[in-house]
Write a protein that binds this DNA or RNA. Structure first.
Length: 860
RNA sequence: GCGGGCGUGAUGGAAUGGUAGACAUACCAGACUUAAAAUCUGUUGGGCCUUGUGCCCGUGUGGGUUCGAGUCCCACCGCCCGCACCA
């Protein structure tokens, strides 16, 4: 019989369903294991990235089932968000219909992959049963003071009358209207994540099974710094303003101060713009810039001289100008800085532009050739904190000190002289959760003229989104929905208005992992279930979530614990994290023609072919530029649809391929050739199984022993590979073992044992094929439920070992010796070799290094 | 701009500081076939001539540590990800 993926895949999926193999229930007889992949946004169709992500999780889940764990492997939908509203605006439908329609489609596309998911726990974050519990969490957080209101800046589109996300701002203009975007202040809700800065930072050390790079990125994001907070006294400032408070991490450069810079949003700047039209214009222009940090940092550094002056705290006679500058963030520090051009390149650029003085406070201890002080035209000199420098114009010990010592000395000096205080600050800002959009979780509060902001009563939850909304007018439809918006105050019963803002979708994804432990509960979580299933033992997702999603989830775990929704152990909810790479594909750009709208013209993979070493469009023969390995994107026509791959080759081929060619943390490029190779291999295994099933038994020989030895090596290597996320390496071993088996001269019984083991080792990756081979070769029960094989240590060690012999680190010969041979014996045997004597050419070895089982290196 | 990562044959990649290129693709050669496809077998980093169990070079570039560096350290170049209202 030929290999028919479609047939066997359907068959074994029903078998697993009938056996209820993936239904998770609490049980004390096995250790639990919770494996979770970041849940998908229901964008419309599944893509290869989903296949890769869920296949990796599935490998872990199936491996853990086989090694005797009680596995929880759930799936849900991150279903709120802008694309649903955009679709509604574009085509007139309802975000709800669009979203649930997409979920149905994607679930139908995922099912054939044969994932070991407990679908009984499925939910979407836009289900009222889910977001209602999220509203309950919000009210608990409010009660505990974990959420509060303050003003914050948003991107405002004055034509569409709507708030824009950063990604909706293109070159300072709204993506739909093309209008110049403004910054506007709104009163918004914030989570007090900054209260946990220190704790979130320190706890990173406990996350030993997280990638070091993710921990480092979070550390930098939280951004702890030690510095000095002090003020400059303002000369003839406006009423009530007599000083400018400043925070600096380099107080040792205070004697190099050359100006004071304040944010355009600083209270002083706002006060001054009232009587200064030019300044008002400057500030307005700054506020037209986007709100993203990237944009602020990349923008040309510009300043406006307010004409005001301040006194230097160490020398009242020393006056400095005050500038409003576009690169200073009101959100960080005090919204004001002092500029020290000699030791900060940005300040130096600024000083040169506005002809401000440049004064070095320290210089290198030993200047290299060509070094010039910044005041002599050199670049800003910024030493490492551990580098020793020569303080030439310091004030706190004036001597050679490391940068760090200089900072500490400066803080101590300033504190002793009443100039300022050493403070620890964090870069981490509070998390603004208000969104002025319809398709999100309503914030469950009411605004009452007499009572102010009143939380909705818990028994009135969920505050449901109204269905009768339209998107034919700009703005948030909740704002113009009177019967929903107008309500009674929960406190006084008088006329009040619902909050029409909804929550950031990051809120939805900050606790879904906890909800999976009790997805139908009438409370956000159930302690008994959370106690059993939490924490997530292995979390898998994209590196793009390294900071925000993971940090927010860590904060939520703490907040939920405080409110009694999670056990103490869940303060860090993800025991282990793995960040996988993307699935990429070449882009085929027409080199001779552009699309009608002037943009580049991209061709689908099946529209091009190779002719005489060049890639051309099949129909027209036009030349094509191949851009290798780019992120799959609809607009580039380089998306490969998993459905078509599954239809053509089966799910096992798709699963095998996405795991095989690249290490999981790196990007993998989808190629037609790679998919075919995967299919070819699975066919080979199938054919091998057919052949072995019909073999007649033969007397045992050395070949049997050899095959068993290779089998145990394969068990060992594949197990190691799966345990350490080395799926590609595990697959390489499986290829090699398949080759060994197909050439083996061993007897039928041994070959059957070997191919059953091969099936088991393959089953996490290609569960359907494995199941079929297992059954064909007389395996008992379901392969998916069979106990994982264990490598026999005794079978792994060889009697002899081949050692390379190096002369001065260059390989010159090799020698085969008994594995347990003594070091000195190995040394003797190596020196006695002809090739070694020839290479030595009479020279006497100075030193001989023998690393047992590894290498011999002769140094002459 | 800031933070993080990556860079190895024609290609994807393998390699606890210890024989660089496992495994796969592609290419070439052979078997089977009237033929092709499929399948199976074998070869393949570059260079040299003296064809050997030979020599030299080789993991983005330049330096360093080490008996020994793809791996560790420093600098540079290129590409990718994140930058707080995309999910």
């Amino acid at each position: 019989m030929p290999y028919s993926a479609a047939e066997i895949e359907a068959k074994w999926q029903s078998a697993w369903d009938e056996a209820g193999l993936f239904r998770a229930t609490r049980s004390e007889d096995r250790p639990k294991y919770y494996v979770l992949e970041m849940f998908p946004y229901p964008s419309g169709r599944i893509h290869m990235g989903h296949v890769r992500n869920y296949t990796m999780g599935d490998v872990i889940a199936r491996y853990k089932i086989a090694t005797g764990h009680n596995v929880l492997h759930p799936m849900g939908w991150d279903a709120f968000g802008m694309p649903a509203e955009n679709a509604a605006m574009a085509s007139g439908g309802h975000p709800k219909d669009w979203t649930y329609g997409n979920i149905a489609t994607m679930k139908k596309q995922m099912k054939p992959l044969g994932l070991s998911i407990d679908w009984s726990r499925e939910f979407a974050t836009c289900d009222p049963e889910y977001y209602g519990q999220q509203q309950a969490l919000f009210l608990d957080f409010l009660e505990k003071g974990l959420v509060y209101r303050k003003n914050a800046v948003v991107n405002w589109d004055p034509v569409d009358m709507t708030v824009l996300a950063n990604e909706q701002v293109e070159n300072g203009r709204g993506w739909r209207s093309g209008a110049l975007v403004e910054r506007r202040e709104l009163t918004q809700w914030f989570f007090k994540i900054s209260d946990y800065s220190q704790e979130l930072l320190e706890a990173l050390d406990t996350l030993e099974h997280w990638p070091a790079k993710v921990r480092l990125m979070q550390e930098n994001w939280i951004g702890r710094s030690r510095g000095l907070q002090f003020s400059f006294s303002l000369i003839d400032g406006p009423d009530g303003m007599d000083r400018v408070e400043v925070y600096t991490t380099r107080p040792d450069t205070l004697m190099g101060a050359s100006f004071v810079g304040i944010s355009p949003d600083h209270p002083l700047a706002r006060r001054l713009e009232a009587d200064n039209e030019a300044l008002a214009e400057f500030n307005a222009e700054c506020r037209r810039m986007g709100t993203s940090e990237e944009e602020l940092e990349k923008a040309e550094k510009r300043g406006f001289d307010t004409g005001l002056r301040v006194r230097h705290p160490l020398d009242p006679a020393w006056e400095l100008p005050v500038y409003v500058a576009n690169f200073i963030l009101m959100d960080y520090g005090t919204g004001a800085i002092f500029g020290c051009p000699a030791h900060d390149q940005r300040d130096l650029d600024f000083a040169r532009k506005y002809a401000l003085p440049v004064v070095s406070t320290y210089a290198p201890v030993a200047a290299e050739d060509g070094f010039a002080l910044p005041e002599e035209g050199g670049a800003a000199y910024v030493p490492q904190k551990t580098e020793t420098v020569n303080y030439i114009k310091g004030f706190a010990g004036d001597a050679q000190q490391t940068g760090l010592e200089g900072i500490d000395a400066a803080i101590a000096f300033c504190e002793a002289n009443g100039i300022g205080q050493g403070v620890t600050k964090f870069r981490l800002r509070d998390w603004g959760l208000s969104r002025q959009r319809y398709w999100g979780c309503p914030i469950p509060v009411v605004h009452c003229d007499s009572c102010g902001v009143v939380p909705e009563k818990k028994e009135n939850l969920p505050v449901r989104l109204p269905d009768d909304v339209s998107f034919d007018q700009p703005g948030n439809p909740l704002d113009r929905h009177p019967t929903w918006r107008d309500c009674a105050c929960p406190k006084c019963g008088g006329a009040a208005r619902r909050e029409t803002d909804t929550m950031d979708t990051f809120v939805d994804s900050s606790w879904y992992f906890a909800r999976f432990t009790a997805p139908r509960a009438e409370t956000p979580t159930v302690m008994e279930e959370a106690e059993y299933w939490m924490n997530v033992d292995q979390y898998i997702g994209g590196i793009e979530h390294a900071i925000l999603h993971l940090l927010y989830s860590r904060f939520f775990a703490r907040a939920m614990q405080i409110c009694g929704h999670l056990p103490e152990k869940s303060i860090e909810p993800f025991n282990a994290l793995f960040t996988q790479g993307m699935v990429t594909h070449a882009i085929y750009e027409n080199a001779e023609r552009r699309a009608d709208n002037g943009r580049p013209l991209y061709h689908y993979p099946d529209e091009v072919e190779e002719r005489d070493g060049a890639v051309v469009v099949k129909e027209t023969g036009e030349a094509v530029t191949v851009i290798p390995s780019a992120k799959m994107s609809k607009s580039k026509n380089n998306v490969v649809d998993p459905v078509s791959i599954i239809d053509a080759y089966g799910a096992d081929t798709a699963r095998w391929f996405v795991l095989s060619d690249s290490p999981p943390e790196r990007d993998v490029e989808w190629t037609a050739a790679g998919a075919e190779a995967a299919f070819k291999h699975l066919t080979r295994v199938w054919n091998l199984s057919e052949r072995i099933a019909e073999m007649e038994d033969a007397p045992e020989s050395d070949a049997d022993k050899e095959l068993l030895r290779e089998m145990h090596k394969a068990i060992h290597d594949v197990t190691m590979g799966v345990e350490s996320f080395g799926f590609n390496a595990a697959i390489a071993k499986l290829y090699a073992f398949t080759n060994t088996l197909s050439k083996s001269k061993a007897g039928a019984a041994t070959q059957r044992q070997a191919i059953r083991t091969l099936a088991q080792l393959m089953s996490p990756m290609t569960p359907h094929l494995a199941e079929d081979v297992w059954a064909r070769q007389g395996g008992e029960g379901l392969c998916a439920a069979a106990t994982w094989p264990v490598a026999d240590e005794a079978m792994l060690v060889s009697d002899t070992v081949t050692l390379p012999i190096q002369i001065n680190g260059k390989r010159r010969a090799e020698i085969t010796v008994p594995a347990d041979m003594d070091k000195s014996e190995v040394e003797k045997a190596a020196l006695a070799m002809n090739a070694v004597q020839k290479a030595l050419d009479g020279a006497a070895p100075k030193k001989i290094i023998v690393v047992p089982g590894r290498i011999v290196n002769v140094v002459i």
